[in-house]
């Protein structure tokens, strides 16, 4: 139990530290806590295009710094999160967002997990139904899944 507690504490520490990744700017961009939180959230959801597996909040690349400046200026100018995201996608495409919006192009991306889950549930349901309909002393080898059990039954 102490091991689990220790793991949870270290996880919490990691999360707290990573949420302060914007120390990359040197200091907080906004004195207002709520505005700074908005800026953090936006910067963490915008991809650094040069180093594509980092957000602009995590990257030292010059382009990431330029994009952070852009976000700060747009927030300071009173633009909404939607306007800032639109500004970025009009220039860099949906790829710049870590959460791409649902559209015809991204429909497969969004639907795939659900479709895979449905396929797995459907497959499992078919197997379970087939097995439950099989007599326990079934000796036929027609069913691949059932054949091993059937062989065991025959040899005993």
């Amino acid at each position: 139990m102490t091991g689990l507690a220790r793991a949870l504490i270290s996880l919490a520490c990691t999360l707290i530290l990573s949420s302060q990744a914007l120390a990359i700017d040197g200091s907080a961009a906004f004195s207002d806590v709520a505005t700074q939180a908005r800026y953090d959230a936006l910067a963490h959801n915008l991809r650094c295009l040069v180093c594509q597996n980092q957000s602009i909040a995590d990257s030292n690349a010059e382009l990431a710094a330029d994009l952070r400046r852009q976000v700060r200026e747009m927030i300071a100018a009173g633009q909404s999160d939607q306007q800032i995201k639109l500004f970025m996608t009009e220039r860099y495409g949906d790829f710049v967002l870590y959460e791409p919006p649902f559209s015809a192009r991204t429909s497969v991306l969004w639907a795939a997990p659900l479709l895979l889950l449905l396929a797995c549930v459907g497959g499992a349901w078919r197997v379970i139904r087939r097995r439950s309909q099989q007599p326990i002393d079934d000796t036929s080898t027609e069913d691949v899944v059932g054949s091993k059990d059937a062989n065991v039954g025959r040899s005993s």
């Binding site: 295009l49 040069v50 382009l63 330029d66 852009q70 220039r91 860099y92 495409g93």
Partner: peptide, 13 residues
């Protein structure tokens, strides 16, 4: 020099 026009063009490298 500031890279603002490059952002308008979606330049990333």
């Amino acid at each position: 020099q500031e890279g603002r026009v490059a952002i308008d063009w979606g330049v990333y490298g």
